[in-house]
Design a protein around this nucleic acid. Sequence first.
DNA 1: CTAGATGCTAGATCTGGGTCTAGGTCAACA
DNA 2: TGTTGACCTAGACCCAGATCTAGCATCTAG
Lengths: 137, 137
Amino acid sequence: MTEATLSIGQVAERTGMSVHALRLYERRGLLASEIRRDAAGRRLYTGGDVEWLTNCVRFRASGMSLETIGRLAELVRQGTGNEAERLELLREHQRRINEQLDQLRACLDIIDAKVSGYERHLAYGVTGDPWQSHVPA
Amino acid sequence: MTEATLSIGQVAERTGMSVHALRLYERRGLLASEIRRDAAGRRLYTGGDVEWLTNCVRFRASGMSLETIGRLAELVRQGTGNEAERLELLREHQRRINEQLDQLRACLDIIDAKVSGYERHLAYGVTGDPWQSHVPA
DNA sequence: CTAGATGCTAGATCTGGGTCTAGGTCAACA
DNA sequence: TGTTGACCTAGACCCAGATCTAGCATCTAG
């Protein structure tokens, strides 16, 4: 079963990446498997490639650097035998995501407080600057 | 009561910013109030400045751009009367933080799944690559 | 009195992650 | 047949945000 393939443009469409970025990622070795080419040298992406890239997009959105993605890609390219390393890398990122969640929640608390401060301020015409004065909000 | 002031180095220490960044923020107009100087031209930060900067650090960590911080700073500098605008700006950021939280959680789910996939893999010597093969993980 | 921190300004440099350009190949369709 | 549109490579460019440099001034402790 010759797997159906996609052109770079189609992959861009379904991953949300630009074709430029797709080529960049390939040049930088961020792909888990080599991309085949057609007779004219055009890239042929498989479903697996798209899946990998979709994960890359998520990883990026959660702050993983291209360098780290590259390390992970290399481990996957090497094949089985380095699962412990992959796990370590993933656990590290897991940790970083949790840190980010904490930070975001902390910031959100502050903003929520300021937002309701301003809402009160606007609703009741409270005097004074809810930011400048040390009134909470 | 002449408020106690801090040097730029001290502010760097307690906000976690570098002195370079502190000067940069000032040049870019990201501060809510003008920083006084001593006779020799050295900056004298007040507690309020440190508080503002601490919020800046949080805002940055949650993805607010320097430009947006600058807009907020300007509104605060202008004094009361533009609370509605400030509120709008804060609400917008609130929205963006919530989006980020969603994305992070989504990514975390994927990573969690992969992590436990690899853990199972390592614990039971399951064969096959939990990444390559379409085995969950 | 002098060394060593610490501060100042203006402007240069770096980094990460993309995006864009030039110049060219190829396929399909009117 | 010839133009249109998607693709190719290599390398230039961009942007935000920070960091560093040069050259100088000012304190403070020994």
